[in-house]
């Protein structure tokens, strides 16, 4: 239990610090970097719970692809408006309401969660890639395919939206 216990607390502290960093940091870029640290800490928790595949996919998709997308989005947004912060009152109120709703949903979900403990011994294959592949292609086949179709339609839609636009302003004329 020793090492697991220590790792659990290290990872939890790291995750909490990173989550605070997302909220507190003034520069958006540091928020994105804190987000990546948070993803790593959560992946560490996944590994502790023997879900290696989930941990790596978390790093690959969320920290890799999603974080990069955030970063490039920020760069583009930043290059098109002034660096002063936009603070609108009703946006803040909407943010507070949305956060409270999320908090309620999360609390309800956690309180309803089953208390059954899954005992993992060396040699069990729960959370390993073979097992997840089997489940994805048997029990969860339809949701899997539907989510794939959804992503494909998003891709096609993006291409349709941008294909007939006038060319973007010359990047050299944009000043940061």
């Amino acid at each position: 239990m020793g090492a697991t216990f220590i790792l659990f607390w290290i990872l939890s502290t790291l995750a909490f610090a990173a989550a605070m960093g997302i909220l507190v940091s003034k520069k958006e870029l540091y928020s994105v970097l804190s987000f990546i640290v948070l993803v790593f800490a959560i992946s560490g928790h996944f590994i502790l719970m023997n879900a290696q595949f989930l941990a790596i996919v978390n790093i690959l998709v969320v920290a890799g692809a999603l974080g990069v997308m955030f970063l490039y989005g920020l760069i583009l947004v930043r290059s098109h408006r002034d660096s002063e912060q936009v603070k609108i009152l009703y946006m803040r109120i909407a943010g507070v309401i949305a956060s409270l709703l999320l908090l309620i949903v999360l609390t309800a979900a956690v309180s309803k969660a089953s208390q059954n403990e899954v005992v993992l011994r060396p040699g069990t294959w729960i959370g390993h890639v073979d097992k997840i592949g089997e489940e994805l292609f048997s029990r969860f086949f339809v949701p899997f395919v539907i989510s794939g179709l959804l992503l494909l339609s998003v891709l096609v839609g993006t291409v349709v939206i941008i294909i007939n636009r006038e060319p973007a302003p010359d990047p050299k004329s944009v000043t940061l």
Partner: peptide
């Protein structure tokens, strides 16, 4: 924290 975590050898990690 009790049963559902894999025990990891501390020496191995270090």
């Amino acid at each position: 924290m009790k049963g559902n975590y894999v025990t990891i050898d501390l020496a191995l990690v270090i």
